[in-house]
Design a protein around this nucleic acid. Structure first.
Length: 219
DNA sequence: CGTCGGATAATCT
DNA sequence: GATTATCCGACGA
């Protein structure tokens, strides 16, 4: 399923307008047999959607500030899904850019302004970075908890998946890259990440790095 | 381009 | 209480 999704289009229709991306990078997570999968240790409230019917969005919140979206791809009871890691914006670029304005805690959260309060030019966020990475993709498409469990195969859903504009699957004529998944600890040697070769919107590979443990009193 | 640390909170042990 | 399917700015090469 994962490489088959490359080149397909994910679009989110909201009151603000529609943003669409052509998927350029995905990762497969194989539930019960995959220690890197959220479903590896069984069903919980968080991963319940993974155990549901295929073609639905599994949206989770992580690192205290980011959302990521998966598409389930197996029958009820088989918790397998594909994480949508990156895409190329093909519609709603201005809206996506507005959603990608960032700020730091405690600072003014005004779209179009930077931390100093200066107007941010339209070129501040390169188009290639609008959905380059799973949390960035969710930002650009305004995907959050509301979309968890949604049927992305129903064309009438706000968040839906459709064949690519090229009309072909498997990213058409383009070569597909294969490699280990980003940021996972268990199962780091399993090559279940797929991307469109030489596409600038594919995120940079990063190995999982154990974070320093919470500082004890070091005196 | 690469590495590093901070932000920040749901989830699980 | 530890961990995390991340992002971003700062800094150095």
């Amino acid at each position: 399923m994962a490489p088959a999704l490359l080149g397909c289009v994910l679009e989110h229709d909201t009151a603000a307008g529609l943003v669409a991306v052509e998927l350029t990078e995905v990762e497969a997570y194989a539930g019960a047999v995959d220690p890197a999968s959220h479903a590896f240790r069984g069903r919980t409230n968080r991963n319940a959607v993974m155990f549901g019917p295929p073609g639905h969005a599994y949206v989770y919140f992580t690192y205290g500030m980011h959302f990521c979206v998966n598409v389930t791809c197996q029958p009820v009871g088989v918790p397998e899904a594909v994480l949508l890691r990156a895409g190329r914006v093909i519609a709603g670029e201005a809206l996506a850019r507005g959603r990608r304005v960032r700020w730091r805690p405690g600072e003014i959260k005004t779209p179009g302004m930077n931390e100093a309060g200066d107007a941010v030019p339209a070129t501040a966020m390169p188009v290639r970075d609008l959905a380059r990475g799973p949390a960035r993709l969710c930002q650009a498409l305004a995907i959050d908890r509301e979309q968890n469990g949604g049927d992305v195969c129903d064309p009438s859903s706000p968040l839906r998946l459709r064949p690519g504009d090229g009309g072909t699957r498997m990213a058409g004529e383009r070569a597909i890259g294969v490699g280990p998944r980003v940021g996972v600890t268990a199962g780091a040697d399993t090559a279940w990440r797929f991307w469109i070769a030489n596409d600038p919107t594919v995120s940079v590979y990063r190995q999982s790095k154990p974070r320093a443990r919470k500082q004890q009193d070091s005196r």
